[in-house]
Design a protein around this nucleic acid. Sequence first.
DNA 1: TCAGCGCATGGGG
DNA 2: GCCCCATGCGCTG
Length: 892
Amino acid sequence: MTSTSVATSSSRICFNSVCNDLKSERPRKGWQLRTGELAELCDRCASIYDEGRFCDAFHSNASGWRTCESCGKRVHCGCIVSAYAFALLDAGGILCIACSRKNAVLGPNSSWPPSLLFNSSLPERFKDCSAKGWSQLTGSGPAPWRQAPGLFNSSTSQPELHSRVPYEVDLSTGIDRLNVSERLSIPSLEKKKNEDFPERLMNGPLKPSAHDIHENGNTGINCEEQHTSCLTKPQLPSLKEDSSNPPFGLAVPYTSIDEANGQMGVSGTHLRPNPQPSLAKQFHSNPHNGLDSSGETQMRNGRPRPDGRGRNQLFPRYWPRFTDQDLQQISADSNSIITPLFEKMLSASDAGRIGRLVLPKKCAEAYFPPISQPEGLPLKVQDSKGKEWIFQFRFWPNNNSRMYVLEGVTPCIQNMQLQAGDVVTFSRLEPGGKLVMGFRKASAASASEQENEAKNSNGVSTHGDVSTSKPKTDPSSWSKVDKSGYIAKEALGTKVAVPRKRKNSVLGSKSKRLRIDNEDMIELKLTWEEAQGLLRPPPNHVANVVSIEGFEFEEYEDAPVLGKPTIFATDKSGEKIQWAQCEDCFKWRRLPSDVLLPSKWTCSSNSWDPERSSCSATQELTAEELENLLPHCNLAASKKMKAAKQESENVDALEGLDTLANLAILGEGGVLPASQATTKHPRHRPGCSCIVCIQPPSGKGPKHKQTCTCNVCQTVKRRFRTLMLRREKKQSQKEADATRKKQQPSLPDKVVDDEPLPCTTSAGNSSLNPEKVVSENLDDDTNRVKSSSSPFKGQIDLNIQPEREEELSPGSDSGGTMRLLQDATDKYHRQQSILSSSGNSNIEVTQTQPGSGTELGKINSSIDLRASHRDADMDHPAIFPIKTFAPTSATG
DNA sequence: TCAGCGCATGGGG
DNA sequence: GCCCCATGCGCTG
């Protein structure tokens, strides 16, 4: 290549040094430069390049021309443009890419780096490695990071896009005119599906090149165009259109015949050079990190796109989550480029003694060397410490598919002290194409994240760690999506502080999906309302408000920022300002209006007002001013929080009955007014003394002795007596039923079963609980709650737990009162759990109690007032669909 | 007997 | 109904 120009974006001249034409407004992209950018060409050169005639046109007199050993065609082998236009033969000589493909002997140039293949000389390995270089496979050559989009950015809800063959056939004419090829995936021997190519076809365009991002400062027009494209299954004819459309490069598959069975075997694509971003760009561009177009859109909208479901070919659990530091850590050489490929949480099997790590199929096929035989091939993998391991990469035929495994991973896993639940990450290190295996300890990740969260004054927790405890304190290293996702959880006040990959210490792999779902549920405890309160447009962006199913959402052209809700206002001089509340002291601090705060922000981070950069500094706002700023509910919550904070320092954290009593104490004469200190279900009126209304909102408060005769204890004990009586009643009823059945065996069960039902007619109560009558006689509190169920259909009845009470078998009575206490305490916790996840803003506000630690309350208390609909909804609380944490839900 | 290999099975998406 | 994949389980050395 004779081009010696630098920066393609800065110059208006065609990058082709022998061409002095001006680039067009939207220069077309050519090959990839070492900087990761794409050469920008004038239309003419780009066309020539697209047609694969670049070397013919511009390098005809240059050295490096060789002759294809097969067809005799002259092939230029001496420039970057032609780097992938030929294949080196082991015996010497070269094949043009067409012949190599045709013969299925070798793929395009840049075969597997020797470092990756333990023994590439073996015939089988040779075959396996033929026609596919690591660089091609993983995109290391032209576009390492683009590979990922191909995998992870599939079109939406697309069925497996099949038949590589038609594409291959159709595109065959385009093969030769493309100089760079990229290995895409291994075709299965058992099938000829190829979902990769169409995806890549889409995803190529889908991904804004780093260059584009760099140029535009955002995902830009191209990204939007790509986004559109990702929603539409590409049609074959469009391929050529795309192929002539340089900006994002195009993956064009080529066909080769499997050497063993003659099936269409090794396939790949020709790919024009793609952007290979710098480390930072790579990270930010890498969809694995959540910045793919669609993902970004989801986040920015605060709601999933309709097409979101099938967006990714791979489950998100395989998306690598790397920080720049992670990447740099893997890369000992600062000049190296890390391409995160995928990650996988170790299952029990993976981490077991068998030493087999099951690889996600698509990841294996896309990122690992293609193998056509089950035996596979040895793969040299470097761990993050630089130690090299050799695994056998192989597969098993499985249900007309393949199951890929890495064998022999036990030493490595043991060396890294990994166990089920930990995450192994795979990346590629350039140059050299080394496969690097990192890991993230589940426990360490979780702990360090929480620690970081606590330490990081920005409140932006980082997560993800590749193999070391190296702190990740640079929030900028996170993609917005990652950050926001994290903050969202953080802001929930559920102390969830979980990484996306939070693991239980011991994993039943079967429960993995469930576990992940549960994490998602936690995430969903944030209502759209609240999410909107946290979302704000990026600087200088104005949100479009769209209404969806009656709810308003702010939509941003660019990724929104999630952070601490603040109150925007105008000061006396007319300057726009915002008020933010310190997480620690709850004082409000004045900040510039354009400041974006992390979700956890404290006075110490107040660099805009050094005098008030400490919690000890007085609050600038007077109480009156604050009251004017804050809506009533928020103010109340704010005060409560403050009181809570103070109170929490004086009381011990307690559980169960103690907790109940604590509330009563707080309510009876404590710091908080009773109306605030109680957890009230909306249906309960002031003065209600039922078990719900006297429940403490938090686990704080003084302990109660068993002999305590305070209001709460008496209530609880009365309730326990009720429960015991119910049990006895139930027991005797069952015995009676059994006796009756024995005496009247012909009596249909239904009659027996239905018998208790008439009880529900008492007092017009619709309860199905046959013990209802007893309950009414003994426990007016519970009765009141139960009887109130009908007007609130669809809402959670916090008191009635029929199934729970069904569980109270007489046999369990042997434990005596303490067991009952425990039962009731459990019930209380369940109720609390339901309350906290109910999504009812009333509940949330009033539930925010001293020391509760529920940051949700904080959210409510300091929600961004620009979201005007929030206030409206405070008055008319809408219950958004919320997933509840099923396992502990005793009511519903 | 045991470890490892390779395939089968079945849950979940 | 298909696919993925975690894991079970039988076979073999």
